[in-house]
Design a protein around this nucleic acid. Sequence first.
DNA 1: CAGATGACTCCCA
DNA 2: CTGGGAGCCATCT
Length: 126
Amino acid sequence: MEQIDAALQERIYLAVAQIPVGAVSSYGDVAAVVGGCTARAVGFALGALPAGRTIPWQRVVARDGAISTRGLAQRALLEGEGVGFDDAGRAIIARHRWRGPAAAWASANGFCVLPERADGEQLSLF
DNA sequence: CAGATGACTCCCA
DNA sequence: CTGGGAGCCATCT
């Protein structure tokens, strides 16, 4: 049974689809939300993303906001959504980081909620 | 079953 | 800050 490829794939896509415009998340966070998989699995799933599947994959970046997707215009896509980048070419994840799906949605769909950051995940910079 | 690949992440120098 | 190495998981050959 497709306990992984199809199911896991759909779960990952579904989770990514929850990321609102202007927000970004990391592979690890998506993996945490989906549960039962790791950042590599997410990366691979997105890599296997079939053309025609319109999901906001560009909102998934490395943990530090850097983009590893060689050559892809991921940055341009995000900028078009209002995501800011720093001089290092990394998304300002501290300000645009996705906090995870709504608790109700996650619970209803069997997803996990992103663990709170003891650090305080501040949105205020400057 | 083993080896290789990849859109990851962490640790250390 | 940058670079190198190891561990991780899923899929393909």
